[in-house]
Simulated scan of single mutants.
Amino acid sequence: MDVTGPADAASFARGPWLAQVDAVLLDLDGTLVDTLGDFALALARTLAELDLPAMPREEIALRVGKGSEHLLQSVLLWACTRAGHADAAARAQALYTRAHLRYQHHYGLVNGSHAVLYPGVQEGLAGLRRAGLRLVCLTNKPHAHALALLRAKGLDGAFETVFGGDSFARKKPDPLPLLQACAWLGTVPARTLMVGDSRNDAQAARAAGCPVVLVTWGYNHGQPVREVDADGYMDSFAEMGVG
């Protein structure tokens, strides 16, 4: 499959490429659901218990995408630095185990309560299913939290299966999750489309040999998503609704 791709995702979805795709792997946070409100609340409660300052939402958005461990480590380092600890890195490391337990607790309580579906998600997923494409949710979010979020947002029946950040030995941007998802589906990577919101998704797809489309409304660590090497970009999830 030629992965040089069209200029935008709308032409990808409605053009001849569709006949060359058997399945779609979809990221969750920043792609299907805006979960920044959940992250902000759970992190604020966790940091308060540790006597550390809360992080602004715009700073949290820069750190989303590589899994909860990376997010928490980055937030702790920022908060310890902001609090004036002489050795912020050492302090953040010392607090990590306790912080991780408390963060998972708080996130479990708020998961989905301050998150919203992006416009066109349900219509886009329905269109892909009508087109006969198999759908898998492939996220770096812990599997249990991913399932709970999908249920809370009425998307639990949209996918054949869900793989989380703890489903495999490595997370995106490593290609392993995509390759394992393709193996589960029984599809070849070149016929399995990855849809995500960041360079993590694109790097994983490129390394796995999957075509990739990026949405323009997600997080992507604060960088313009159109600067990331991808086969297409879409400004509305409804653009993936076909048939």
Rank of each mutant, 00 (worst) to 15 (best):
D201H: 12
V3F: 10
L109G: 08
H221Q: 15
Q203G: 02
K172C: 10
V3W: 10
L176A: 11
M1I: 10
E69M: 04
P189G: 12
V242E: 05
A144V: 12
M234F: 14
C137I: 05
G241P: 00
L185M: 02
P175V: 03
C182Q: 05
D8R: 10
R14E: 12
F39L: 14
D156S: 14
A202Q: 09
L179P: 07
L76F: 07
L72D: 05
R129Y: 03
A208C: 10
D229S: 15
G112M: 00
R130G: 14
F237Y: 03
G157A: 13
L76P: 08
D197I: 09
V195M: 03
D166I: 04
G67T: 02
R130N: 11
Y233T: 04
T81C: 02
R82Y: 00
E227M: 01
L128Q: 06
V75D: 05
L43V: 13
V121A: 00
P119N: 05
D38K: 14
E69I: 14
P189S: 08
F159I: 04
A230Y: 01
M240C: 07
W78I: 10
L178P: 01
L133F: 07
G186S: 06
F39R: 01
R98K: 12
G222S: 06
M194Y: 02
R151P: 00
L43S: 07
F12C: 03
F39H: 01
L47Y: 03
L28W: 00
W17C: 05
F39E: 00
G112R: 01
P211Y: 01
Q93E: 15
A54M: 05
T216W: 06
D29I: 07
S167Q: 11
R45E: 12
L18K: 09
G5D: 00
A204N: 08
P119H: 10
V242T: 12
R206D: 10
P211C: 08
G108L: 01
T161D: 11
A202I: 11
D156P: 04
P6T: 00
M194N: 02
V228W: 02
A79C: 06
A40D: 13
G30I: 01
L28H: 07
L117Y: 05
Q93H: 11
H105W: 13
D34Y: 02
